[in-house]
Design a protein around this nucleic acid. Structure first.
Lengths: 230, 230
DNA sequence: ACAAAAGTGTTCCCCCTACACCCATGG
DNA sequence: CCATGGGTGTAGGGGGAACACTTTTGT
């Protein structure tokens, strides 16, 4: 079966910039796959692929992520569309990139079909990347950083229960600098999105109070936007 | 000549959400064309069209704008990509929308070939629109509003020389609310982007000092981002 | 003289910043 | 009792918000 058109057409793909926080390594991680096919076979790349004809762009990323990595996202938004001619050796390929976030509990990867393997990489120690994916990742990191300062980010990156130190650590990892503990706590509590669960985490030494997000209030703040210049 | 592919392909278009301020009518205007062809012939729509195979997305919007309206932009950025199946009756069409700004002096429209005519519409009094263009415009207005509060917007929307009242009016029109004159002036001058030209505008009653933007400083602030919650 | 827009200062309060010590627990 | 991370308060300063009158010009 073949499809014939009067004019040449570009292909349309989607790519996923998926971030997760690794609390053990205190690092921001990004999900990459090793390409199983040409072009760039054996190279590292963002998960993604061609959009089906009757499929929404968002649906396409979710499907591709499922196929290639089986990771479950807790959040997704459109990032940017990259369409420079020549960005793909196969011909004209326009790609819409998405920003995704995952909670630590869902960081497990089952290897899929299209990808040789999928691995979490430290954002600061990335390998060489296929296509213009280095640039896409750069755009994604910028977006995440700016997003964090005017929207409450956290529910999508933290486990359901977490300590204030966890939350602070998430911010420090993303922003790449340290934050004063007292100021951070006062500020974050003032928004009224956090509720103590009553449970404590006993790990080392003094137990830490566990919190969860008030989802209603969280959604409200997300809509309104907040000023969170920590 | 025909082009044959193994799989079906979507079309890719670009659309331009172009804003300009009309100081006479104290209104935010948007550039629309009356479609000269099917589908939606005779309806109002955003300027735009198909991306050529060897053409960057940005280049495509600029070309289409030129062809259809001859308007000269002072600024452009990518807005969002709309790709829902069914958004275009011709088949699968994915469209990347751009946000454009024009200065009042360049608001003149020369009618082009593709469009029956091009007209500036008040954003608050829009006609029925083709495709999902109403939604695209809504996204554009939101972006412009949020952009204004963390980047210095103005150089792209104002004439080369302008009064502080002009600038304030621009902000009021975009944000849709009034701002205290004294606070606005103090805040805007504190950024150090404005320089008095020495000229004054004599229109009614007391003459007003004319200002221009310091382009170097403007570019710097644009890069850094600012906090401008007026 | 009056109408219209330009221009100008101050006070109050809130929030951000900087900063250092005690607490609870495990080993 | 010591090491480790959890948890707390305050003083000072800067900037935002609210607010009203004088100045300059044209008619």
């Amino acid at each position: 079966m073949a499809y014939t058109y009067k004019y040449p057409k570009a292909d349309h793909t989607v790519d996923a910039v998926v971030f997760g926080i690794d609390f053990d390594e205190t690092a921001l991680k990004i999900l990459l796959i090793e390409r199983a096919r040409e072009p760039f076979k054996g190279n590292w790349a963002l998960p993604g692929g061609f959009v089906e004809m009757d499929e929404d762009l968002e649906a396409a990323v979710i499907r591709e992520l499922q196929e290639e990595t089986n990771v479950r996202l807790s959040y997704m938004e459109q990032l940017y569309t990259f369409g420079a001619p020549g960005r793909d050796p196969r011909g004209r390929v326009i790609s819409t990139a998405f920003l995704g976030l995952v909670q630590p509990g869902h960081i497990v990867i089952h290897e899929g079909s299209d990808a040789a393997k999928a691995v979490w990489w430290n954002v600061n120690e990335l390998p060489g990347l296929a296509f213009d994916h280095a640039q896409i990742i750069k755009t994604g990191v910028q977006r995440l950083r700016s997003k964090i300062s005017w929207q409450p980010v956290g529910i999508e990156l933290l486990p359901d229960e977490f300590t204030l130190s966890d939350l602070q650590q998430a911010y420090e990892i993303i922003l790449g600098r340290s934050i004063d503990k007292r100021n951070f706590r006062r500020k974050v509590l003032k928004f009224g999105v956090l509720a103590p669960t009553g449970n404590v985490r006993k790990e080392n030494y003094r137990p830490a109070q566990l919190y969860q997000f008030d989802k209603k209030r969280y959604a409200l703040l997300q809509k309104q936007g907040i000023d969170f210049e920590v």
